[in-house]
Write a protein that binds this DNA or RNA. Structure first.
Lengths: 266, 266
DNA sequence: CGCGGCCGTTTGATAATCGCAAATACTTAA
DNA sequence: TTAAGTATTTGCGATTATCAAACGGCCGCG
């Protein structure tokens, strides 16, 4: 049979690059492993995976220590490069530091990519206790519907993108408060647009609340968001519904001004 | 002529992955660009580069905004993941923060990979002035011979690796003080081993000094280093040659203890 | 001591893929 | 409208990736 008979339509892609991505993902999820272990997660031969690993080591994406393969520090340095190229990060990380100082809680600077939230920067206020969760959230892009920062962004995206993202949401329940259907989410998003800030009332993690505000660009397009996260015991009443929202919005506005004013050399 | 006649020996590699790496590098160096611009840096056809870019976008390594291609935030999140998997980072970043508080200067936590230094973490003390250089050093792996942290690592690497790295050094002169030949470097490294700490006296950047100490693992293998960097005006006399070195070594030792004690769950 | 099992590595062969050239579509400017 | 610049698609031949199978190294066990 001919090659074309497989019904292989669609735009053309480089299969080897997709395979390499699979290999990288496998290493990432296993937190490093031997050739045999990595191969087990991939529908490929040991020999093939071996060739990919050698190539990725050459290119610096993977390191090898004995028979353990791990992701290379190149991801750290390129990641740093990407952050420093991002106007939102350059304009915002100092403000987010100050917000952490003023509130004493964890603060985050968030961007959106492919319908997920990306933590560009995290700052820890003096009352913020060590948590494991903040590692997870920085490592893996989270959904946009169950965090304050995510909802703040989602609320201000262009309608078409918003609809597209909502349509692809899985609404996995994290806590009793997680929003689990599209209608409820849309209502909440309308509220957020009216108020100018988003709340997360133990919707992602039990015992944790958060306040988020969008950072808008010149043409009202949302470029990201800022948020404050802390235990429900400290985020209550007036502080949760008025004082902290005011501070978060103020920070977001300051970042907006910097974004429009400052020239980030390119 | 037949395909085999090219004398293509050497270990087998996936060419498309190497090409994808070239594409990523081109985007990185141009700080993003159009298809035409990226193609100009690569000995490939526009059509070919186009297919690679589409693939990389699919895989999340590249984002597209209109006709501008940029590296994706996936590098940020994977980079974060790699850092959090690194024992040295988990054991050291708090100590490096404290060192910054105590000295008031920039402090760094450094690892080594492929003969270059990688900035795992940077902390800014209250007297540390904003610098552009610290962005550069975090983005691009630096050589090991012209920084305090680098020399501290190099001094304690196993002889074979050290010789290998020194043999591949280019000794590019950065300032009047840069060490520019292997003999001089070896002498300095011997001193560093005797003293237990490394100095950088305006060898990388004019006006900047630094003190670095190695972080050693259980079997005396070096796993990284810690350093303090500041203007020569503040790092002088006793402070440069005794007080700060003492603090840097203390921090490195604390990290060593944490590394041996703590169980980083895997 | 030698054997079996379990790694990682190499290799031959061929189906499948990549990469170029050229054609096509899409945008903007004049 | 044409023109000139983009980005995208496609046909096709040379190159390459992939698998199976053989190889080599290491450890533990009988």
């Amino acid at each position: 049979m001919t090659a074309g008979s497989t019904g292989n339509d669609g735009p053309r892609r480089i299969k080897s690059v997709q395979t390499a991505t699979d290999v990288i993902d496998a290493i990432k999820q296993q937190q490093g492993g031997t050739l045999a272990e990595i191969t087990a997660d991939l529908e490929l031969t040991k020999a093939t995976v071996h060739t990919y690993l050698q190539t990725l080591v050459d290119c610096g994406f993977v390191t090898r220590d004995g028979d353990q393969y791990r992701l290379g520090f190149q991801f750290v340095t390129i990641g740093e490069h990407v952050r420093n190229e991002t106007d939102l990060y350059m304009a915002g990380h100092n403000e987010v530091d100050e917000l952490a100082e003023r509130t004493g809680e964890y603060t985050h600077l968030i961007a959106e990519e492919r319908g997920r939230e990306v933590v560009l920067y995290e700052s820890r206020g003096e009352f913020a206790v060590a948590m494991d969760y903040h590692l997870r959230m920085r490592e893996t892009p989270q959904h946009l519907h169950d965090t304050a920062a995510g909802k703040a962004i989602l609320a201000h995206l262009p309608v078409t993108r918003r609809d597209e993202i909502i349509a692809n949401l899985e609404f996995e329940r994290q806590t009793a408060n997680t929003i689990t259907d599209a209608a409820e989410l849309r209502e909440t998003l309308a509220d957020i647009r009216d108020r100018g800030y988003a709340l997360n009332d133990e919707e992602e993690i039990r015992g944790m609340r958060a306040v988020g505000a969008p950072v808008l660009g010149p043409t009202e397009t949302v470029v990201g968001s800022v948020s404050v996260t802390g235990p429900t015991s400290r985020l209550q009443g007036d502080r949760f519904h008025s004082a902290v929202p005011k501070q978060v919005i103020e920070t977001a506005n300051l970042i907006e001004v910097t974004l429009e004013t400052a020239q980030f050399d390119r």
